[in-house]
Design a protein around this nucleic acid. Structure first.
Length: 152
DNA sequence: GCCAACGTTGGC
DNA sequence: GCCAACGTTGGC
């Protein structure tokens, strides 16, 4: 079972949006970066995903969700009304993928970005690399454990 | 709100 | 294929 991290603005869709409907499924769509998309496509049912809050007051890892449906063509790419509409995408050759995510748990406390940056064990994690804008990234088992040790 | 870093686009 | 211009990301 692989592990991942996704960035999100909590004003758009944060861990509390998952917690509010713990049985519900939230499509993770709108990813429009090829590297991030390639990681999305690798996600398997049952994989665990850190939810990272960016561009907000309290930046950091807020909780964990679970992949409940592996990659499928992101419907928003076909919808002219959507901000994620991509006119170059076709049903035959969709460019973008989405997965479905479900609430797993909130962390006992938010893990601030500063704490993550301070850990030498995480220096390879794209999240803490200078200037990294990757919004979907793999997390190794070792990194996952190191991160959880900060709060569990 | 600022701005550095980055990814994408498009002219050549 | 190069690279300048542009738009976006995201921490501060």
């Amino acid at each position: 079972m692989a592990k991942w991290l996704v960035k999100t603005e909590p004003s758009e869709c944060g861990i509390d949006d998952f917690a509010r409907q713990p049985e519900g499924v939230i499509p993770w769509d709108g990813v429009r970066n090829y590297q991030a998309r390639n990681f999305l496509a690798q996600m398997q049912e049952g994989d665990l995903v850190f939810i990272y809050h960016s561009s907000c007051k309290r930046i950091g890892i807020a909780g964990i969700v679970r992949v409940v449906k592996s990659a499928y063509p992101d419907p928003s790419q076909f919808n002219p009304e959507s901000p994620y509409y991509d006119p170059k995408s076709t049903a035959e050759k969709p460019r973008w993928q989405a997965v479905d995510l479900q609430f797993e748990r909130k962390l006992p406390a938010l893990i601030p970005l500063d704490s993550l940056k301070a850990m030498p064990e995480l220096s390879e994690l794209a999240l803490v690399r200078r200037g990294s804008r990757l919004s979907v990234m793999p997390v190794s088992d070792a990194e996952w454990q190191q991160i959880l040790h900060l709060v569990d």
